[in-house]
């Protein structure tokens, strides 16, 4: 953020330096552009101010979440709440631990389930996405549109039939009920299809001529090329599973098997909301997702180069 600060304050020297580094370290794809003349500089500064300001505004709820989680309830009783760094303490988290002795267990459950779901989705969605994007086969469009359309029915009405299926399979109170229906996702397949669709076909064709199997093409050529897309998919899927609430609530009953959001919901009182407890729970639940974001973010920026792939 400091570099933007520099731009805002109008120190062209650092900005120019910065640009050079950006172009040098470059990633494929970025069109080279550098402001020339007063008008363009002014424009760039204006734009950066706007972009920074918006980033700050959109961060407000998250900052508010962590501040209230770190502020003992007393400070929250006033409106506007008296939240200042001086008051920060871990009291709410201690209370959370006390109220929810199973918290580590729920956390572990969710880590395992969400990770497994993410891995399965990365595999199945990318494979199916590649198939729908690159292979011509009878029924392709009909199959694809049928599964896409199923997403347009709101989940509220499919809940009961879903529950009946799970019951019939004897998966009630078992992670199978959560894991197996989530192993592949329509949105994920669609995302990867759209992403892979624009990859040049020449490489695959070349590989095919060289006698590479269809699976080999996907594994050795497509996958390395779509790391940024897979990073986005991984983030989306992990986060969706991490936040899952209604479905685990309906299919799990043993408290030690609960998923995190479901477990945190048991802390809610009937009448009054204990904001300290609620916010520390939400913050606790948000932290791993932030971590996962930064892990995947590395791949988000991996560019591709045709030469590298062909050699490798």
């Amino acid at each position: 953020m400091s570099t933007n600060g520099a731009v805002v304050r109008g120190k062209p020297g650092r900005w120019a330096l910065h640009r050079r580094r950006a172009t040098a370290g470059a990633v494929q794809g970025g069109p080279s552009w550098r402001p020339r003349g007063v008008a363009q500089w002014a424009g760039a500064i204006l734009v950066m101010t706007f972009v920074t300001a918006w980033a700050v505004v959109s961060l407000v709820p998250l900052v508010w979440l962590f501040t209230t989680a770190l502020t003992p309830s007393s400070a929250l009783l006033r409106i506007p709440p008296d939240v200042s760094v001086r008051n920060f303490s871990l009291d709410n988290f201690k209370l959370l631990q006390e109220r929810a002795p199973l918290l580590p267990r729920w956390f572990l459950n969710t880590v395992l389930v969400a990770s497994a779901v993410t891995v399965f989705n990365l595999f199945f969605d990318t494979l199916a996405g590649y198939t729908f994007a690159k292979l011509q086969f009878p029924g392709r469009d009909i199959i694809f549109w049928t599964i896409l359309c199923t997403m347009m029915i709101p989940g509220q009405v499919t809940l009961v039939p879903m529950f009946m299926i799970v019951k019939a399979l004897h998966w009630y109170d078992s992670y199978f009920a959560i894991l197996i229906p989530a192993m592949a996702g329509v949105f994920g397949i669609f995302l990867m299809k759209q992403y892979i669709q624009t990859l040049p076909s020449e490489i695959e064709d070349a590989a095919r001529v060289d006698g590479c199997s269809e699976f080999g093409i996907w594994w050795r050529i497509i996958l390395p090329l779509c790391k940024p897309g897979m990073a986005v998919l991984g983030i989306f899927v992990f986060m969706a599973e991490w936040k899952a609430f209604m479905w685990p609530l309906i299919v799990l009953k043993t408290e030690s098997k609960f998923m995190l959001e479901q477990g945190l919901a048991t802390l809610q009182q009937q009448f009054f909301t204990d904001y300290g407890l609620l916010m520390s729970g939400a913050a606790f639940s948000a932290l791993p997702m932030i971590l996962v974001f930064f892990v995947f973010q590395r791949y988000l920026m991996e560019g591709w180069s045709v030469g590298g792939v062909l050699k490798g």
């Binding site: 609530l249 408290e255 048991t266 009937q270």
Partner: peptide, 9 residues
């Protein structure tokens, strides 16, 4: 034990 949030559902 149901939870207040989602127990009715």
């Amino acid at each position: 034990k149901l939870s207040w949030a989602g127990g009715g559902e």
